[in-house]
Each structure stands twice: as C-alpha cells, then as structure tokens.
Amino acid sequence: MPLSRLSSPFLSGTNRVTLQMLQLLLALVPAVIAIVYFFGPGVLITMALAIVLALLAEALMLKLRNRPLKPFLTDGSAIVTAVLLAIALPPLAPWWLVTIGVLFAIIFAKHLYGGLGYNPFNPAMVAYVVLLISFPLEMTTWLPVTILSEHPLDIASAFQMIFTGQTSSGISIDALSGATPLDAMKTQIGLLQHPVDIVQQPLFGLFGGKGWEWINVLFIVGGLYLIYRRVISWHIPVSMLAALTLISAITWFVSPELAGSPLFHLLSGGTMLGAFFIATDPITASTTVKGRIVFGAGVGLLTYIIRVWGGYPDGIAFAVLLMNMLVPLIDYYTQPKVYGAK
C-alpha cells in the first residue's frame, strides 16, 4: 500500500504537476497567436517539430534510465520545454537547429541531471544558449516585422523554408532576414547614434520593437492568468521587472545616449517571456519568498547589463542561467523565520 494511505493527511488537494504544465501552455496561447500574426506561421512548425522530438527524447531517456514512461511522458514538462524553446528561436529557424536544441535540452540539461525536478538549470535556456554560442548567425536571423507585408509567408512556404532553407519560388532565408530591434539598438548605439533617433526607424513601434511590444503585452496577459491561477507567484516577475525598470530608468536619466528607454527594455526581446514563463520555472528558481525577490531582481539586473554592456543583444537566457547557479545559496540565506523563533 502506498505511504499516502498509511499515514495522515488522508486528504489531498486537486493540484497536480500536469495541471500546472497545462495551465502554463494555455497561458502562452495569446502571445503565440501574436507571434504568428507578426512573424508568420513558422513558429507553429518549429513548435510541432520541437514537441515531437522532446517527447521522443524524453521516452528514450526514461527507457535508458529505467523509469516508468507513462507518468513522466504525461506530466507535460517535456512539452513545456519544447514550446518555450520554439518560442525563443527565430521564426524560420532551420530544422536541424531546432533538433539540436531540443535534444540538448531534454538529454543533457534535463535527464543527465536526474530528470524532472532535479535539473539545476532551465533546460530551454540551456539549449538556447548552446545554440546561440554555437550557431550565432542562425540564431540572430530574425524576420523584420515589415517584411511580411512584402512577402507574405503561408504555412507551406514556411515549412519549405525551415526544412530546405528556401521557398519553392526561390526566396532564401537571407533575403527575408534582418536584425531584431534590440540588435539594431545595440549596433547603432555602437555607431554613436542617439536612441531617440534610432527608435524613429520603421523597425520600432510605439514603445519597443514593432510587433515585439504587442507580443510582450500578451505575455503579460498570460502571466497574469498564471498568477491568478496560482501556478506562479508574483514575486519573481515583479522583482525582475522592477529591477529592470529601475536600472534602465537611472541610465536613461543619467546618460540617455547609452541605451534605450525603460519602456523599450520592458517591451522588447524576451523580457516578458522571461519574467513570467522562464524565470518562474519552479524547478530552477529560488523557492523562498525573499529568495524569489532576490532571484528576480538578479535576473532583471543581469538582463540589462548583458543587453547594454555585454556581447549579445538580449540577455534573458544568460541572466536566468547565472541566477540558477546562485539558487542554493539564495535559498539557504533567505529561510523564513519559523513560528516562535526569537
């Protein structure tokens, strides 16, 4: 007889791991729709490919590790990793890039550390960083939002693009690609242009990158749903966004020529995806209340530092991984005061 039947409590709440994962996937839907709207249907193909590969890799690893297949294949965690990675990758990322990323995430970042619950680093972010370092060109080949109005991409041509690198009409990925707003901001500041002038270019929207800002807003909507359903707590997103706002506001007022505005940073790149869906990954984030605030603030600060002074246009993935390393230390020093303690 299982332990749970032998000793109290004999009651159990309705919360389940699978349920949490499903809620998370549901919360991503609005933002994914926006990504399809602005960057074409490529992300859906990437996502489907990633999910299939993730489940296969998960099954293989479970088999090798002599673990039961059913509970772990149905817990939803592999699918979440696949979906998050697919969203983070460029919309027309070649199939082999997706494959390497997913396999690395599931096999190395997850199962070699012991599988669900035991991985110290967020698997999707490990894969993202591995790909970014190994294949910098492919990883920064984004579609400018405006290009779709000139060359509309249907699902078939996106499919051809991902698997062959060009459409049947002969348009290659290089013809479509361009820099992301964060990338453009960084390069042009390097060329001593002023951020205020840079954001006048067609690549930029009202507050952040064109299109990107709406995707970020929809990530916020999904994130608020997760907080409302208690899948995540508010501490990490709030402290991360507060830290990012604070440091970018200080820089913006002290030397506005150095970087974009606070709003630009909040609504560009992977800020909101990171704040609500990546940094809040329970397995790899801090678990105490105070610890979560420290952890979130660390991610926010590091993201900004990497974006502005580092070598890469966006810093979410690196920031999360760096803070993952500090989690045991943070958790140890942020234990709550126990009832009756002096």
Binding site: P2, S4, R5, P9, F10, L11, S12, V17, Q20, P71, D75, S77, G115, L116, G117, Y118, P282, I283, A285, T287
Partner: peptide, 11 residues
C-alpha cells in the same frame, strides 16, 4: 490521497 506513486518534487 491518491494511490499512485508520488512524482518528483518540482520545487
């Protein structure tokens, strides 16, 4: 409380 084996802790 369920009869099934517990899943790993997801922290």
């Amino acid at each position: 409380a369920p009869q099934s084996k517990p899943m790993p802790c997801i922290r």
